[in-house]
């Protein structure tokens, strides 16, 4: 009886949920379109050199990014972002696990980690330019270093705050070390880890752009800065539009991946809130 009741309420919720979700999607797509339209119309007769008409910006957007500079500038930026982010997440999780396992080392490393975390990621870029020069490695290393800390710290915190009840289950049933790590502790910490990974993604994105604004001439960031310096306002705005789109898309992809990976967590929370 109780089971029937429970499924009844969830199906009711779902029925109310569908239009709400549709509305959400409409707003997500509709609001930017309305804003763009407003921008388009209001800027139509703009003669301000810093705020050219949107029509002109879109035109430049088309000429520059579709697909003239796609290969020369967009692809390198994107591959740096993806590669740097991936390495940072991997290092962050592995490092976090090691630090969480070895308490004494964690005590030693803690102040250092928090010092580096407190430094704004962009401020690290000059260090790497000075030590590694202006090559692509510099950009990649900058992204990795900036993006690794949020994931690392979240992993350590997540593993430390695993519920003692779940730990006891692992110990009482003599689970092996790898089972305890992979089946109990990491999944239990995963909501926290994913929150860190999201911040890592944002840091990686910021540093991807910042690293291209120093000394290099390729990449979306470099193109945008160059456009600004040569008073090509429309080009600059086109670059900003592209960066915004990429950032938005990256975050949306991340949210989708997280919803999949943590589906148990979100559903359990929803269930908890409902009962």
């Amino acid at each position: 009886m109780r089971v029937l009741l429970a499924t009844d309420t969830t199906s009711n919720k779902r029925q109310r949920g569908i239009p709400r979700r549709a509305l959400h999607i409409c707003l997500e797509i509709g609001v930017p379109i309305v804003l763009l339209a407003a921008w388009f119309i209001s800027s139509q007769r703009s003669s301000n050199p810093f705020f050219p008409p949107l029509a002109e910006i879109l035109n430049r957007f088309h000429e520059l990014w579709l697909f003239d500079h796609l290969h020369s500038d967009v692809v390198p930026s994107m591959s740096n972002l993806v590669l740097g982010f991936a390495i940072a997440v991997l290092l962050g999780v592995i490092g976090g696990v090691l630090l969480a396992l070895m308490r004494p080392i964690a005590w030693l490393a803690d102040p250092l980690i928090h010092f580096w975390r407190a430094v704004p990621p962009v401020a690290l870029v000059p260090i790497f330019v000075a030590t590694l020069g202006y090559g692509n490695e510099t950009r990649l290393v900058s992204i990795v270093v900036a993006a690794v800390f949020p994931t690392l710290i979240a992993t350590v915190d997540g593993l430390r705050s695993v519920d003692s009840g779940l730990r006891d289950v692992g110990r009482a049933y003599n689970l092996t070390f790898s089972e305890r790590l992979l089946v109990v502790n990491l999944p239990a910490a995963s909501p926290m880890i994913m929150a860190g990974v999201q911040i890592s993604l944002q840091s990686a994105f910021v540093v991807m752009i910042a690293s291209e604004m120093m000394g290099t001439s390729t990449g979306i960031g470099a193109m945008t800065l160059l456009a600004q310096q040569s008073y090509a306002s429309a080009d600059m705005w086109a670059g900003i539009l592209l960066l915004g789109t990429i950032g938005y898309a990256a975050n949306a992809l991340f949210e989708m991946a997280r919803a999949r990976i943590l589906s148990w967590y979100f559903k359990a929370q929803k269930q908890g809130a409902a009962s």
């Binding site: 009840g165 779940l166 049933y173 003599n174 999944p187």
Partner: peptide, 25 residues
């Protein structure tokens, strides 16, 4: 020895199904 804990909400892994939870040990 096997243990059944007082607080079931802190003894079952919410990311595993009932069957997977039973399989864990």
């Amino acid at each position: 020895m096997a243990l059944v804990f007082q607080d079931y909400s802190r003894s079952l892994m919410p990311w595993l199904t009932a069957r997977q939870n039973i399989r864990l040990p």
